[in-house]
Amino acid sequence: MNRRQFLSSTGIATIAASSKPAAAFAATPKRATMQLGCQSAPTNDTHLKYLARYGVRNICGYPQIADGRIYATVAELSRMKDLAQKNGIEIDCVGPPVLTSSHIDSEKHPAIMLAKSPERDRDIEDFQKLIRNCGQVGLPAIKYNMSILGVLRIGRVQGRGDCTYSQWKLSEAHPKTPLTGAGHVNADMFWERITYFLERVVPVADEYKVRLACHPHDPGVPPEGYQGVDRVLGTVDGLKHFITIQENPYHGLNFCQGTVSEMLADPGKEIYDVIRYFGTRKKIFNVHFRNIRGHRNDFVEVYPDEGDVDMVKAIRVYQEVEYPYLLMPDHVPQAANDPDGLQSFAFSYGYIRGLIQSLEG
Rank of each mutant, 00 (worst) to 15 (best):
R3C: 07
A13Q: 10
A17N: 13
A17Q: 12
A22Q: 12
A27G: 09
A27R: 11
A27Y: 04
A32F: 04
A32W: 10
Q35G: 05
Q35H: 14
L36F: 02
L36T: 04
A41R: 11
T43N: 00
N44E: 10
K49H: 02
R53E: 15
G55N: 09
V56Q: 01
R57Q: 08
G61D: 02
I65C: 02
D67R: 15
G68K: 14
G68I: 11
R69S: 05
A72Q: 01
A72E: 06
R79G: 02
K81M: 09
D82L: 10
A84K: 06
Q85T: 09
K86N: 13
D92C: 14
P97C: 12
P97G: 11
I104Q: 09
D105V: 06
D105Q: 05
E107R: 12
I112Y: 03
P118T: 07
E119S: 13
E119K: 13
D121S: 14
D121P: 01
D123P: 01
I124Y: 04
R132F: 00
C134L: 09
V137N: 00
V137E: 03
S147W: 03
S147V: 02
S147C: 13
I148M: 05
I148T: 08
G150V: 04
L152D: 08
R153G: 06
R153F: 08
I154T: 15
G155L: 10
Q158H: 10
G159D: 02
G161M: 10
T164K: 12
T164L: 08
Q167M: 14
W168N: 12
A173I: 08
H174G: 00
T177Q: 12
V185I: 13
A187V: 06
A187S: 15
D188R: 12
M189C: 10
E192G: 08
T195D: 08
Y196R: 07
F197R: 11
R200T: 05
Y208A: 07
G225A: 08
Y226H: 13
Q227T: 04
V229T: 04
V229H: 01
R231A: 01
R231M: 10
R231F: 00
V232G: 01
L233H: 04
G234V: 10
V236M: 06
V236G: 06
H241V: 04
I243W: 02
T244W: 04
Q246G: 02
P249W: 10
C256M: 03
Q257P: 00
T259C: 03
E262L: 06
M263H: 08
M263K: 03
G268Y: 05
K269E: 14
I271Y: 00
I271L: 11
Y277F: 15
Y277P: 01
T280N: 14
H295R: 15
N297T: 13
F299E: 04
D310C: 06
V312D: 15
A314Y: 00
A314R: 00
A314M: 01
I315M: 03
R316H: 15
V317Q: 01
Y325M: 08
L327H: 00
P329R: 03
D330Y: 03
P333A: 13
A335H: 05
D340F: 07
L342V: 06
Q343R: 12
F347S: 10
R353M: 08
G354Y: 13
E360G: 05
